[in-house]
């Protein structure tokens, strides 16, 4: 069973996508709801709001512990929460060796859609089609270090997806598309981590 952190943001979209690919799901708002989960998605939303609620309801430490043992994927705000540095004083899980820049493209008026090449998705699909990236007041991953690897970049080279073992961060929102490849890719990560 895979959980979706449901404190705020696009958690219903992730739950729907997971159900469509046959995954059992659970909404997570309190620490005890992490029990017996095989993986977790932290959705898009406002990272300051999600971070504050995670602190207020005692989820920060349990999420850090969970992330040591199980797969976590963060989209947009979720990617910010996974990072070790967002260049701003706000609660982070600091699980991935990435630094992010919030609202890196500017305000809402600069939000955009673009097709991305994500070679790693060949693992879950034979089709070669690019992945349609939806970027909303999106962050950028401005550096990866340690064991973190780049999964996708914009045409100009700026990083928008990274993986570090069983942890995945995307600056864009696969949950706002009809393309389930990133979700299936993440489920493979969940299974890999369980088997390890």
């Amino acid at each position: 069973m895979v959980g979706v952190l449901a404190l705020q943001g696009s958690f219903l979209e992730h739950l729907k996508m997971l159900r469509q690919i046959g995954v059992d799901v659970r909404e997570v708002r309190l620490p005890e709801q992490l029990e017996n989960l095989d993986g977790l998605i932290i959705p898009g939303g406002e990272s300051t709001t999600i971070g504050k609620l995670a602190v207020d309801f005692g989820l920060l430490e349990p999420l850090r512990e969970f992330g040591k043992e199980r797969a976590i994927w963060g989209t947009c705000a979720g990617a910010i929460l996974l990072s070790k540095d967002a260049r701003r004083d706000q609660p982070l899980l600091e699980l991935m060796d990435i630094t992010v820049e919030r609202n890196a493209f500017g305000r809402q008026i600069a939000s955009f859609e673009i097709d991305l090449e994500i070679p790693a998705l060949k693992e879950v699909s034979n089709e070669d089609a690019p992945f349609h990236g939806v970027f909303i007041r999106a962050p950028l991953i401005d550096s990866v270090s340690g064991k973190a690897k780049v999964l996708a970049s914009l045409p100009d080279g700026r990083i928008v997806a990274a993986r570090q073992g069983h942890l995945l961060a995307t600056a864009f929102h696969p949950e706002l598309t009809d393309d389930d490849r990133v979700h299936r890719y993440f489920i493979n990560m969940v299974i890999e981590k369980l088997a390890s």
Binding site: A6, L7, Q8, G9, S10, F11, L12, E13, G44, G45, E46, T49, C76, A77, Q108, I109, A110, S111, F112, E113, I114, D115, P130, V134, F135, I136, R137, H173, L176
Partner: peptide, 22 residues
Amino acid sequence: MESQVSTFKTKKGLAQMLKGGV
């Protein structure tokens, strides 16, 4: 493909990111 800025999907998408919020 070129990027498309300020599409209806991104406009509607920001509101989706505000859900469950105040």
